[in-house]
Design a protein around this nucleic acid. Structure first.
Length: 310
DNA sequence: ATCCAGGCTCCTG
DNA sequence: CAGGAGCATGGA
């Protein structure tokens, strides 16, 4: 007998100020967000396995920026307490709903350019990638290729994974599990526009996860430097990638991928260098945001992505 | 066509 | 330890 679909609705109260519209607009144009569906600029949907069950999460906004209330709908088979708790904590984590942005604003506003960016997106906080593993896949995919193409590759990877779930009559793609990517072949990926190196990086890092040489969950408690080191051990994972994963996958508030070409471009422009900033210059500029360098990075990238006048 | 893109590895000096 | 060549692929 087929189990019935269950649905639970929860109300979330983010720390104010919070503007979900900005977060959804960000996701709608974010190249990494291929599994997130943004409908009508006001509804977020995403299917993901949490607490062992595939769930469909829907998030929408109520309230105001200063008194934000969000409505989270959780749907799935076998819905139970663990799934509901996991869904809530997932959304809290991805949208950073429990973080107080006050100190970040105070630090960031000392810089006139960053001040302009955060004012333009008032109430927005960094939006994370759905899991450290997804962030790792995305970072490797994104190495040294333009983001439009990177997005295409991620979509391809998802389709090759063939993992999906049907909930309430709708079919939703899931991110392939490490086991699935580990079993892909270099030839298959190459035939789908992945370079040989990239194919091997993705396959091997996934194998490392399956075989336990890389335990992403265990990084949660570690210091930034320790985490970086345990990531960089793996071929294809350099400093940029590791810092990116900490920032976007783990929500490390102070991690900045300073070698990033986008950061180097926009900081060169913002500070009138007449050229790209060097990695070292990016690190030097970023010292003023110590404690919040990951958040600052998010807003710099956002300015770039939205072509905001600086 | 040519340059460049949300880098990494490996090899020099 | 710093610097740079070579890489592999598609976008604009």
């Amino acid at each position: 007998m087929k189990s019935s679909i269950q649905m639970v609705q929860l109300e979330l109260s983010p720390v104010a100020p919070y503007n979900l519209s900005h977060a959804l607009a960000y996701l709608a144009s974010s190249p990494s967000a291929v599994l997130e569906k943004i409908e009508d600029k006001r509804l977020y949907r995403r299917a993901i396995v949490l607490a062992g069950q595939p769930l469909l999460l829907s998030l929408s906004s109520g309230g105001s920026i200063e008194q934000p209330r969000l409505l989270l709908k959780v749907q799935g088979h076998e819905l139970d307490e663990p799934q509901i708790a996991a869904a809530q904590s997932f959304i809290n984590q991805v949208f950073m709903l429990e973080e107080d942005p006050t100190n970040f604003y105070a630090v960031a506003r000392a810089d006139p350019v960053l001040d302009k960016i955060i004012n333009h997106f008032y109430g927005l906080r960094p939006v994370l990638i759905a899991s450290p593993y997804e962030a790792l896949l995305w970072a490797i995919i994104g190495q040294q290729v333009n983001v439009t193409f990177a997005r295409k590759m991620k979509q391809t990877l998802v389709e090759l994974g063939q993992e999906k779930v049907t909930i309430n009559g709708g079919e939703y793609q899931l991110l392939p599990r490490p086991e699935t990517v580990a079993n892909m072949t270099e030839d298959t990926l190459r035939a789908n526009q992945f370079s040989r190196q990239k194919a091997n990086y993705l396959i091997n890092v996934s194998k490392a996860i399956v075989e336990g040489q890389l335990d992403l969950e265990s990084l949660h408690g570690k210091s930034q430097e320790e985490s970086l080191t345990s990531l960089i051990i793996h071929k294809g994972v350099g400093r940029w990638t590791a810092e990116y994963v900490l920032m976007r996958g783990f929500g490390e508030k102070d991690s900045i991928p300073a070698a990033d070409i986008g950061l180097r471009t926009i900081m060169g422009r913002a500070y009138h260098l007449g050229r790209h900033a060097t990695e070292q210059e990016v690190r030097d500029f970023a010292e003023q945001w110590a404690g919040w360098r990951g958040w600052a990075t998010f807003f710099w990238w956002l300015a770039l992505q939205t072509k905001l006048e600086l």
